[in-house]
Structures are given as structure tokens and as C-alpha cells.
Design a protein around this nucleic acid. Structure first.
Lengths: 299, 299
DNA sequence: TAAAAATACTCCATAGGTATTTTAT
DNA sequence: ATAAAATACCTATGGAGTATTTTTA
């Protein structure tokens, strides 16, 4: 019986699904399946009744769930208490991030972290990928969040979250009623794009290149320097753009924009947490990094 | 952080010694040392101050100790509760053992097990190694405890405890005042020995053979059929015998016998728990076996 | 047929072992 | 000198992954 097995077990019981729980604990579905089978073998009893797609805790499973909760809670408490006496949860973090994470993703993380750790101050700055990376290298920033891998010899990269982008249209655009459009329709659209060096532009370019399409085959009508400007462009009806879904949540919600899929294309990219490779992060920064990674699935 | 690490950690804190704790949890000293180092690295702080030979919990160690206790306790409770609803802690166990374990070793185990598991009945019988093994093979016994390995193709062996033997003398014997005698003195002594086929006799014979001594080089004056008879023989002054220390605890305590070491000889043997190899033990028997192994260090 | 879980297998990390060195009494 | 902990090194188990099959709604 390991704490990892118990964590998976608890998540499965909560979510009533092996695969969703696997996702939540950042393991593959077969791995959590294995963990539970191992637990069941060790305890000599089934923990879940597999009723086809439905999953129900057995009596033994319910009993284990209570104790498992106590165990993983105790572990968390021990860590927190130890960090407290070490003074790890006090101090300042200089955080830098590129546009999308800085404006749309990190805020809830920072809010919750500061609430849970009231003696920590976080200074958050936004910049382009290159300058954030350079500042982490120079020591001006403790930790960065960026969307592509550069200077890998000097920086440590940790997978953070996957940013899903889609083609966003003014809600009144005729194609905006469809859920999916063809490649031809896409190529014909008046298109707004970010400046060179932008992480989103690179992600779009890469995906197009996979299909053998070059960026200048698009009908590019504007090139704008930040996400907010692109949103204004779409709302003004100047054109369409591929943009992070997290940046247009409100616009979609209030019926100003819509997003559609493009057949054969899937725009997405990873954001990474970066740390200096040789200069070891002080404990508070490690702790904050752990917090980001632990909560990356949903928050 | 694993429960195994925490169990070792707790034992170390209790015993204030890495090597004693290693012994108690049945691991090597370097292994528990590794476990603690791993824990310390993971938590980012020392858990013990190593003040030379003295070992003291740090503040962080004290905090961890509290929570670690809760975790391992919860695990134990979960196991017990699950076993209860499975009905594992009810039923009968037919237990067979050879002389020494049956008469001197197993009793406290059985007593405590029955106290902790009041719905379990244990039927304990004593016989010679051969017949116990045969009965386990035939299914007349669920579990056996014997002192040598026979029928290894049909039986599963688990190391149980090490039985230490020594040369026992009547307290009034001149050599009984020494703590150790020479090999020559030993060979000259009138000697009482068990019958052929006895486990203790075999252990003695093996140890002598290692030094190139054959059994009939001893001055054997009696051959007796059980341990109790040999004890009576020693008390009557008929001769000396190599006998399990656990069989003469009271006699030594009350000054009737003494035991001395023989230079260059170390009489000891292992007792094994045996189960049938193919017929799988029912859960209660597995549980009892686990209990024996868990508590083998001291009880 | 489409999803979810189980199985088969492969590979690597790590836990534990032995042997040895270091350290402190 | 001795006893205890740390270190070095090796091996083997098992945990996690990918690919695939089975199952059932």
C-alpha cells in the first residue's frame, strides 16, 4: 500500500472513473488501473464493483476510503507544518510570464497561493518569451512561465499546462454558425496574426507547416502586437484569428465571438515553468513550483 | 514519502538507533539509512541530529513523527477493518510445530493473536519435523513451524526466528562457573544428545562437521527422546547437553543450570514457517502467517 | 461503435542488498 | 578499538509507459 495508490484510489472514488482520475493525478489510465489491482490484491478484496461503465465502491472500498483520506491528509499536514517551521512559506517570489499565461492563466493560481500562504508576496511581470527567459537566466526573476523552449542549456523546463487555441470569428460572421470549417474556407478568411517572435504565432506556423502550408499562404490582413489588440480586431470585424480559448471566454459567453474548428488542424501548445539550471531555486520557489504543478489540472 | 520510510523513521525515533531500528523492521542498516536520507531530501530538512552516537529528533522530525504515527496507524486500522468485514478474523487454524517452537516459542504468539482476534480458534499440535511437514502436505495442518528444510518441492518456507542454543550444564558442575570453555573441555564432557532425526541434533552435528568433528567423537553418555528428558538429565547431573536457550530460561533463572560458550562453536538454527506450495492458504491462515512474521523480532 | 477498463509488454528508476569507509567514543 | 552511520556500488523488482484487447452501453 503506497500513498500514490491511495491518492489515485481517492480520486477514482470521487470521480467514479478510472480514466478521469488518471488524468487528475497525471498518470496513464493503465497505471492507475494497475495501482488499484495491486491494492485489491494486497487487501484480498475488490475495492470497486465494475458494473460496466458505472463504478461503485464496495464495502471494503468505503472503509479504505475513510482511512486513505486520513493518511493523505496527514501527509499534506506534515509537509505544511514542516515548511512552516522552516520558514519556507514566507518571502517573495519574482515571477515572470509571457502574455497568455500572465493575463489569463496564472492569476487564479497566484490568488489561491497567496491566500493559502499569507506571508508570501508574489511580484508578477509580463514580457515576451525571450526576455522572460533571459531574466530568469540573469537572476532578475525566480521563476518563469513561457510557451516555447529556448536556452535549454541554461534553463530547467517543466511541463505546465496545455493551451488550446481555436479560430475565433466575430459572432456575426457567416461561418461562425458552424462548428467546423474546411481548410479552404480557412485559407480564404481575412486573418489577423501576432508579430514575429510571438509564441502563438509560432504554434500556428508549426501546425500549418505540418500540413505543408506556409504562413504567407494565409490571407493576412493585420499583424498586431498583442492578444488584446487582436481581440479588438475580431470584435471590429476586421478579420479572424487563431487565439487561445482562455483569452476569449467572456467574449464567447456574451455572444460577441465564436470559435470554430478547422478540419485537419489542431492548434495547441504547451506552457512551461522555467527555472535556472545551475543556480538552485530557494525553497519557497520550489514550493511555489510544486504548487503550480500539483494544481495544473484544474483550478 | 512512503509508508515504509515512515515505519522505519518511527522505529528509529523510538529506539534512537538506526541499526536497531533496521533490525526491527527487517531491513539492513544501510537501507534504513537511505530511507531517512531520502525523506530528509524530500522534505528539505534534517529529521535527526546525528550527535556522534546519540541521535536526536530535530523539530521537523518531531512534527513528522506525529503525522507519521497517524498515517501508519490508519493503514493498520484500514487493514483490520477490511479484514473484519471480510470475515477473515474468524475461524479455525490447525497449527503444527516441532518440539522447541511448540513448547517454548509459539505460545506467546498464539496467546496474543487470540486476544487480538477473539473469534479465531487455534489448534496447536506438536510432532517431529517429518510428521509436521507431512501433515501440512496432506492438508491435516494449515501451517507448520519446523527447524529444517525438507520436501522443498511441496512446501513454501518462510524464515521465522533464529533459535540460539548453548551448552547447558548442571549449576554445580566445575566448568559451569566459566563463561566459555575450550573445545577440548567440551569434547571430554559426558554428553546427552537427542535421537537421530531431531532438528537440534542435526544443527549440533552440522556445526561440529564445519570444524571437522564427527558426532561420535563426543563423549555421549545418553540419547534421549525429547527436550524435557534432556533437561531432567542435566539437572540429575548425568551430563551436559547443547540445548535451546529458550528451553532453559527458568532453570537458569533459578540457579539450577548454567550455559557456557564453546570456543569456536556457535550453535544456532532457523525455524521456518511452512505452508503448502500449491494449495493456497485461506485468508485467515495468511493473516496468521503475517502476524507471526511481523512480530518475529520480539514478543 | 465508441467509451472505458483490463491486459500484454517493455523499460527504467529505485529500493534493497553487500562491502567498505568514515566517524566518534 | 569498536560500534554505528554513511557511502559506493550492484542487482532485481516493480511502477509507469505505449499499444492492444476486451467489454458494455
Amino acid at each position: 500500500m503506497t500513498l500514490e495508490q491511495l491518492r489515485s484510489f481517492i480520486k477514482i472514488a470521487e470521480m467514479e472513473s478510472f480514466s478521469m482520475a488518471a488524468n487528475a493525478v497525471h498518470l496513464s489510465q493503465p497505471s492507475v488501473s494497475c495501482q488499484i489491482i495491486a491494492l485489491e490484491k494486497e487487501l484480498g478484496t475488490k475495492l470497486f464493483d465494475r458494473l460496466g461503465k458505472r463504478i461503485v465502491l464496495t464495502k471494503a472500498g468505503e472503509i479504505l476510503l475513510q482511512h486513505a483520506g486520513i493518511m493523505v491528509e496527514s501527509e499534506k499536514k506534515a509537509r505544511l507544518a514542516i515548511n512552516d517551521i522552516l520558514g519556507i512559506r514566507k518571502g517573495e517570489i519574482k515571477l515572470g510570464s509571457s502574455n497568455i499565461p500572465g493575463a489569463y492563466i496564472l492569476l487564479p493560481f497566484i490568488q489561491r497561493f497567496c491566500k493559502e500562504n499569507p506571508c508570501v508576496k508574489i511580484f508578477s511581470s509580463i514580457g515576451d518569451t525571450l526576455s522572460i527567459a533571459q531574466e530568469v537566466i540573469d537572476g532578475g526573476l525566480d521563476l518563469g512561465v513561457i510557451g516555447s523552449k529556448i536556452n535549454e542549456d541554461q534553463l530547467l523546463y517543466f511541463d505546465f499546462i496545455e493551451d488550446v487555441m481555436a479560430l475565433a470569428l466575430n459572432a456575426s460572421h457567416p461561418l461562425a454558425q458552424k462548428t467546423s470549417i474546411s481548410l479552404e474556407e480557412f485559407l480564404a478568411l481575412p486573418f489577423i496574426i501576432r508579430e514575429e517572435g510571438s509564441g502563438s504565432r509560432k504554434a500556428i506556423e508549426d501546425e500549418l507547416n505540418k500540413k505543408g502550408i506556409r504562413l504567407n499562404e494565409l490571407n493576412i490582413v493585420f499583424q498586431l502586437g498583442n492578444t488584446e489588440a487582436i481581440k479588438q480586431g475580431i470584435k471590429a470585424g476586421l478579420g479572424a484569428a487563431v487565439i487561445s480559448l482562455c483569452a476569449i471566454l467572456d467574449e464567447v459567453k456574451f455572444g460577441l465571438m465564436r470559435h470554430v474548428a478547422v478540419e485537419g488542424l489542431s492548434f495547441k501548445r504547451k506552457f512551461y515553468i522555467i527555472l535556472h539550471k545551475t543556480r538552485s531555486a530557494f525553497p519557497l520557489v520550489e514550493y511555489f513550483k510544486g504548487f503550480l504543478l500539483e494544481n495544473r489540472q484544474g483550478l
